[in-house]
């Protein structure tokens, strides 16, 4: 059993925090994990992605092959579509619906939605609005993780909660509680 996940977004949106939470949960569950990150130049407002592979058997490649990702978790709708050739036929896209427009030729929102609508399994959620509504600034990424929780397969919702508690422990109880709340908001939003 394995889950291949592509995390995507724009530099600075917080995809590495999502990766850290999932990675920590996988470690606690004694699963095999490989997570390829992007550091350096492209982090400055450019497109960023991370390949995250979780399995109950040893993993060879750090990178995910074309047509084989089980899930694309994206903090930005166009960035979700960028990795389409990596998505498996029955794979899921779980994405924030809010465009991050920092380029002059950003496509029309309708055309992005039309592309997403062609795919069989898509969850598009305005996590920024949810974060605002629940007064959880900076937690949009964890809300999205909550929405993606079911697609992770090898890792359960409680595993993610425990992982958040460990990952954010050094920031204090209030931050832990905020992020656990954010996780549950995302999780319930797609029930």
């Amino acid at each position: 059993m394995k889950t291949d996940i592509i995390l995507s977004g724009v530099g600075g949106q917080g995809i590495l925090s999502i990766a850290t939470i999932i990675g920590e949960a996988a470690l606690a569950e004694n699963l095999y994990i490989k997570q390829a990150e992007v550091h350096g130049m492209s982090q400055r407002g450019g497109d960023v992605q991370s390949n995250l592979r979780i399995s109950d058997r040893p993993i060879c490649s750090d990178l995910i092959a074309l047509g084989s990702a089980d899930v694309i978790i994206s903090l930005e709708p166009m960035e979700a579509l960028r990795y389409l050739p990596y998505l498996s036929k029955e794979g899921w896209i779980i994405t924030s619906s809010a465009p991050f427009v920092n380029i002059p030729n950003y496509p029309a929102e309708e055309s992005l939605n039309a592309e997403l609508a062609k795919l069989p399994h898509v969850i598009s959620l305005d996590v920024n609005a949810l974060a605002k509504e629940h007064n959880l600034p900076k937690c949009a990424n964890v809300i999205l993780l909550g929405a993606a929780a079911k697609a992770l397969q090898l890792i359960g919702y409680e595993d993610l909660e425990k992982s958040i508690a460990r990952v954010f422990a050094h920031k204090g109880e209030a931050v832990v509680a905020m992020n656990i709340n954010a996780l549950s908001i995302g999780y319930r939003a797609v029930e």
Binding site: R44, L66, G67, P85, Y86, I103, L112
Partner: peptide, 20 residues
């Protein structure tokens, strides 16, 4: 070889890095 299930989306445009 691996066969992609989906072709690259034509809507997607490059997003180069930029100064903050």
């Amino acid at each position: 070889p691996h066969d992609p299930a989906y072709t690259a989306s034509q809507v997607v445009v490059p997003r180069p890095p930029a100064l903050c």
